[in-house]
Design a protein around this nucleic acid. Structure first.
Lengths: 192, 192
DNA sequence: TTTATTTTTTAATGATTGTTCAATAATATG
DNA sequence: CATATTATTGAACAATCATTAAAAAATAAA
């Protein structure tokens, strides 16, 4: 009935995500982003709406392709699941560009204070990760992997979530991987 | 010899800090900032230089008026010094606007990847705080306040610094203070 | 009081911002 | 093939951006 789209929707979204992830919302200009994603401005506005809509879509795309929750849910040992999340994080930080940080955290810092809808989305993501940590901790407890002096598993989950978020911010300026390894080492020492 | 300045230099700088702290660098417009600080644009440019110069000056002003390092250095008990830093942090978060977060952390997220001079400044600040934590931990160790299974005091200092940074990011979306209290509780439980 | 120097004021600068207009091109269905 | 519908193209839009030009105002020293 009509002319078909010539680009892959999620491919362009992924490129837009890369750009916003690197430059943030205010730091990104649509004219530069247009060059980066490889389609013309009008096509972009037709398919995704305005800048904020595209940004929000990119943010949702980010959480869909992130792996922490999946790792926490699909590793049988609770303690090992948590350790693996942090191990994977360190491996990523050693491999890729550390300065990009976590897109969710970046957005939390930049936009959450000025966009309540995005703030709500981020808070729900935080709770989703918190729950995943909690369930892994509950499994760990059943398996006798939790030191008895820690009774409040929800507090532990929040603590781990916080450490993870902190790590992605700390990694933005730190060049020495030892710093990040030290942080993870002590963070996970509560299991010893 | 010449016409005297009609405004207080550090007073205006403090107002500029408030504005940049709230809106970030890219999110802040000079025309709005001018209204907020109460002097005309030309006076602003005469005294502080361009937008980035003013922002950098505001950031330096922020670290000069921050209290964590001072608290760590001027509390005799090392353990108590560290506990007090986190207690003060929680009190601040309960009292004032949580969404502002920490100006250094905000800037670390927004600008560190694109401005190496600012990244260097932030990294030096991180190291300064890390050292303050380390010295407090060394005092704590002398006073027998450190569990013997923790030998690497620098790793502990980095861990505490990371938890503090994470807390300021987490606080941006969290409305329930219990979450933040849980985080601090578990973070400091390594001393038990 | 005159002069030299600097601040303040008002208005404007060119560049860049996000977004859209108008025209052309490409498809599916009738 | 003709038509309806949507995608792409290239140029343009008003608004806002950081910054500054030019003139008036205020002071200290001569």
């Amino acid at each position: 009935m009509a002319r078909p789209r010539e680009f892959d929707t999620t491919e362009v979204l992924s490129k837009a995500m890369d750009y916003f992830w690197k430059y943030g919302y205010e730091g990104a200009s649509m004219q530069e982003l247009v060059k980066h994603v490889g389609i013309k401005a009008q096509s972009l506005y037709n398919t995704y709406g305005g800048k904020r809509d595209l940004f929000f879509a990119a943010l949702k795309h980010y959480v869909n392709q992130s792996t922490a929750v999946h790792t926490l849910e699909h590793t049988s040992s609770g303690k090992e699941a948590i350790a693996r999340v942090f191990r994977d994080l360190l491996a990523d930080l050693a491999r890729s560009d550390r300065t990009r940080g976590c897109f969710i955290n970046n957005t939390c810092v930049e936009l959450a204070p000025h966009d309540s809808e995005i703030a709500d989305f981020i808070e729900k993501e935080r709770i989703r990760l918190e729950r995943a940590y909690y369930l892994a901790l509950a499994r760990a407890k059943e398996q006798g992997e939790i030191n008895e002096r820690y009774q409040d598993l929800m507090a532990l989950a929040r603590y781990l979530n916080n450490a993870q978020g902190g790590l992605m911010v700390t990694a933005k300026t730190v060049t020495d991987m030892t710093v990040l390894e030290d942080i993870v080492g002590v963070t996970l020492s509560i299991f010893d």
